[in-house]
């Protein structure tokens, strides 16, 4: 291969790679355990469905911090913090989301940490109990409970509104 051919190949690669970047920008992945889609861009909106971790969704429109997306099961709004432009690959047969792994996911094992590493950590640190953390995670407050709580206490923003 001559130097000229090398440069041409590089230029071609640059052009095509650049073009492909924008073509897939409308697709995003759910990066939280279970995202609830809402009828309006707010936590007050009615739940229209849910999308699990790693599911790809198509972005239809954006409004402030909220994106309207179409998932496999439903269409609705998600807060931007629930989404990433990265593709998340779940290993076939993984029993829980923490066991997700692919060639690239595992690259993050060293800094990142999944359920396998938590299990290894538990084995090596028997004095550290995760039971209180498991119980703590079971304490949940739904957006509607939070709203009712604010109303009952007369908590409302002076101007604008809670997002």
């Amino acid at each position: 291969m001559t130097t000229r051919q090398l440069w041409m190949a590089t230029a071609l690669a640059l052009m095509i790679a650049g073009a492909s970047g924008s073509a897939t920008a409308a697709d995003m992945s759910v990066q939280i355990r279970n995202a609830q889609l809402r009828a309006t861009p707010s936590y007050l909106g009615k739940i229209t469905g849910s999308a699990p971790y790693a599911q790809r969704v198509e972005v239809l429109q954006t409004q402030g911090d909220w994106l309207e997306v179409r998932s496999a099961a439903a269409t609705g709004w998600l807060h931007k913090s629930a989404l990433t432009t990265k593709k998340i690959v779940i290993k076939a047969g993984a029993s829980d989301v923490g066991a997700t792994a692919s060639g690239e996911e595992l690259a993050l094992a060293g800094k990142g940490f999944n359920s396998d590493i938590e299990a290894d950590f538990k084995n090596k640190n028997a004095e550290v109990s995760f039971a209180p953390i498991d119980r703590m995670e079971k304490i949940t407050v739904s957006p509607s409970e939070a709203r009712a709580f604010l109303d009952q206490g007369g908590v409302k923003p002076v101007a604008g509104g809670a997002r």
Binding site: Q31, I32, I88, T100, L108, K111, F113, N114, S129, I133
Partner: peptide, 21 residues
């Protein structure tokens, strides 16, 4: 990816272990 920001899933596992500790 190895040098990118930690993902929310990894942050979750770090947080659990920090809390348990």
């Amino acid at each position: 990816k190895a040098f990118e920001k930690i993902t929310p899933e990894q942050e979750y596992y770090v947080g659990r272990a920090v809390g348990a500790t």
